[in-house]
């Protein structure tokens, strides 16, 4: 499809925008506009829109710019707090769940040794097991992995839970940043 734009349109457009049509134009250009369909359309449409714009600009109902500025500041702060809070909450929940799962698993794994220890405790008639040395012997009778003791296992489990929480926080933070970037891209699309 061809677009029969006329070469005179640019000049006519300039004169309309300057408010100088038709009084400020050459008689030849006015004569051309009467005979050219494209220019006649341009004049009709552009003048109608320029008039409508002038009217509408006068009718505009404006709010205080300070109020909009304040709303934008508030929204930015809320978004910043929400962005930081979301991954933090997720990490906390994950750390709690991971810790509970580890504790539950450990309890089940150690149940057998625990029962044996309780049986040994029942056989003992004195209370000297409360002494520190008895705790040392306790850690030696409940090995989880051959060569390790509970005094190493507990900090390791805690460290694992802590690191898991940090990793989940970082992952969720990245996901949030991606979401925000997508949203802003959509706004300006």
């Amino acid at each position: 499809m061809t677009h029969p734009f006329c070469s005179q349109e640019k000049e006519i457009r300039r004169l309309i925008d300057a408010g100088a049509w038709p009084q400020g134009s050459m008689p030849e250009l006015q004569a051309h506009a009467k005979s050219c369909r494209s220019c006649a359309e341009l004049i009709r449409v552009r003048q109608a829109f320029r008039d409508a714009r002038s009217e509408a600009v006068r009718q505009a109902r404006l709010q205080s710019p300070g109020l909009l500025w304040w709303r934008a500041q508030l929204r930015r702060r809320n978004e910043a707090v929400a962005r930081i809070g979301r991954p933090l909450l997720g990490a906390q929940v994950f750390a709690l769940v991971a810790t509970l799962a580890i504790v539950a698993g450990l309890s089940i794994f150690q149940a057998k040794e625990g029962f044996q220890w309780l049986a040994g405790l029942a056989e003992s008639s004195s209370l000297h097991w409360l002494h520190w040395k008895s705790l040392e012997s306790l850690s030696s009778v409940v090995p989880v992995i051959p060569g390790t003791s509970i005094s190493l296992l507990v900090p390791a489990v805690l460290m694992l839970g802590l690191l898991s929480g940090v990793i989940v926080y970082l992952v969720l933070d990245d996901l949030d940043n991606l979401d925000d970037a997508d949203r802003q891209r959509h706004d300006s699309r």
């Binding site: 409508a52 714009r53 509408a56 600009v57 009718q59 505009a60 109902r61 404006l62 710019p65």
Partner: peptide, 11 residues
């Protein structure tokens, strides 16, 4: 900018 933008949106 507000008035031209309002005119655009309103019309």
């Amino acid at each position: 900018s507000a008035r031209p933008l309002w005119a655009y949106l309103a019309r």
